[in-house]
Write a protein that binds this DNA or RNA. Structure first.
Lengths: 130, 130
DNA sequence: ATGACTGCAAAGACTTTGCATCTTT
DNA sequence: AAAGATGCAAAGTCTTTGCAGTCAT
């Protein structure tokens, strides 16, 4: 069953050591120098595995690509729906309360809060894109 | 420039008349009976157009597909990261406050709040998926 | 040895694009 | 007639899968 894998370990560490919320491709790019034979399919497979094992979390698809997060503590993000930029926001008590009350209301087990909108750079341009 | 299009109008009305948050494919399925020649590419093109025009809003990719929302008022969703199920939650004052304060903190123009987690059906099974 | 893990290439799923044709103005 | 909108098919992205070879136990 569970078996050690240098690749998987590297992927997990890569994810834990960055503050950005990377995609499979970004992780591959990071690890390629040290693991020249590493393959994108392997990255995907291990990300799925790590996610299923609860060691990482997926942020879902953002701007067409799945983003992952090495921080599995409940926390919050702000995401630009235009360019995909992601910012962390501190997990205030009001957010925690919100997550809890929404969970009670809906029966969901709320794990993360993603506020979406337009980042400063997109806010001006995208509103009237053209 | 802007020109009337029966297809675009139908897509917009379809989106406004449903409470689910559909994908391009779902919209096509709905409209096919009345618009037999309607094409998926046309649906996509018009969704992009309507989104750029600010008449609809994208919820981003959920479970691999982009979902759209005919309700452009700021509001909140709960999304299951396992099966993609979407639930609306009433826009309470605490959520509004949260969105505003996050906006101030990050400089983003916050438009929606998406709480993610596991729905009741996935909560039991997915946690220990296997 | 055995079964998990990997690399590679092929296949999938959803979305976008090119182009000739049809519509709206 | 002119410019936008559409249908169809081809091309693009990102992701998953099949398979034979490799590695950890």
């Amino acid at each position: 069953m569970e078996r050690y894998s240098k690749n998987r370990q590297a992927i997990l560490e890569c994810l834990r050591s960055t503050k950005i919320h990377p995609t499979a491709g970004w992780i591959l790019d990071q690890l390629r120098p040290a693991y020249p034979s590493l393959n994108l399919a392997t990255v995907y497979r291990n990300l799925i595995r790590l996610k299923d094992d609860g060691l990482i979390r997926s942020m879902g698809d953002i701007a067409g690509e799945e983003h992952f997060d090495g921080d599995i503590q409940p926390h919050a993000h702000v995401i630009c729906t235009c360019c995909g930029k992601i910012a962390d926001i501190p997990l205030t008590e009001s957010i925690i309360n919100l997550m809890e009350s929404a969970g009670r209301q809906t029966g969901f087990e709320i794990l993360a809060s993603q506020l979406t909108g337009l980042c400063p750079s997109c806010s001006g341009s995208e509103n009237r894109k053209e």
